[in-house]
Amino acid sequence: MSARRDRPYRAVVATAQVLFRVLGLRVEVRGAERLPVSGPVVVAANHQSFADFAVVGLPAVRRGRLVRFLAKESVFRAPLAGWLMRAMGHVPVDRRAGAAAAVRALRLLRAGEVVGVYPEATIGHAFTLKERADLRPGAARLALETGAPLVPVAHWGLHRVLTVGGRFSLRRGRWVGVVVGEPLRPLPGEGEEELTDRLHARLAALVEELVDRYPDPPADPASAWWWPAVRGGGAPDATTAAGLDRDAIAEADDHAARRLARRR
């Protein structure tokens, strides 16, 4: 994309960095050198916060690049946010008809851009990576169709600032870890499901690494809503979280259907 079109994006990046400093976020990025400095790249990240694109994109910014994210269509309808999303070259996704988004993503990759995808599709309530069955194969499909490396990017900690359930905090000093994994390239004869299997394994390991390194674990895990249940925390367990995730998707789809009906 042209330098002129990138100006709004770079302005948003600068604003986000100021907000990070105001909030005193301790953002630690590891492995940024694993993200290629040129050519098409598919970034696949876990999804835990409404603002996680701001940290998922940091490794690319440090490599002199910008990530064009696939994001739910409803974000683009908000007056200011929608204008910014379009100005930054992000791609709206309608879950009921995703072909248009896929075409735009392929066009961006063939132009040598970095495209960001959230295979979990929605923010997870368990604050761990969702089960393999819940990962969408879109990121792998884009990599296979274009030959772009599939780069896993995991993050953990930003959900303590802003996430689902109306939870947010302006408390200063939160730690947010971001780690870039080794690029995945398709193996001979590998299809999108097999590549997604490998992506899931890599992302899950990276998320676990970040939780292992978390510098401020709760003194009483059971009372900490943000600490994973698999580690004795107060977050929903995998079964409960999966139900909450499905309810969130159903509510969003119902809202979209009602909006479409009003237009007719």
Results as ranks from 00 to 15, higher is better:
201 A>L: 11
191 G>D: 04
87 A>G: 02
22 V>C: 08
174 R>M: 13
246 R>S: 09
108 L>N: 09
170 L>T: 02
9 Y>P: 10
154 A>L: 02
142 L>T: 09
80 L>E: 00
249 I>S: 02
244 L>I: 08
258 R>N: 00
45 A>P: 01
216 D>L: 14
23 L>Q: 00
224 A>D: 05
213 R>G: 05
36 P>G: 14
4 R>D: 09
13 V>H: 05
16 A>K: 00
103 V>Q: 14
43 V>F: 03
239 T>F: 06
214 Y>H: 10
85 M>Y: 09
238 A>L: 13
99 A>P: 12
11 A>M: 08
169 S>E: 07
100 A>L: 04
242 A>V: 08
107 R>T: 07
79 P>S: 08
33 E>W: 13
150 L>W: 05
127 F>E: 05
107 R>C: 05
180 V>P: 00
119 P>R: 04
96 R>F: 10
176 V>L: 01
173 G>E: 07
19 L>H: 03
119 P>M: 03
58 L>D: 04
36 P>I: 02
83 W>C: 05
73 E>S: 08
33 E>S: 15
263 R>P: 15
221 P>M: 05
162 L>H: 10
60 A>N: 03
65 R>E: 07
110 R>A: 12
79 P>G: 00
212 D>Y: 07
186 P>K: 13
106 L>R: 07
39 G>K: 08
52 D>N: 03
106 L>I: 07
27 V>S: 08
219 A>P: 06
233 G>K: 00
4 R>K: 13
27 V>L: 12
262 R>D: 01
189 G>E: 01
27 V>E: 02
125 H>S: 01
260 L>E: 11
230 V>Y: 06
27 V>R: 04
114 V>L: 13
124 G>D: 12
92 P>E: 08
188 P>E: 08
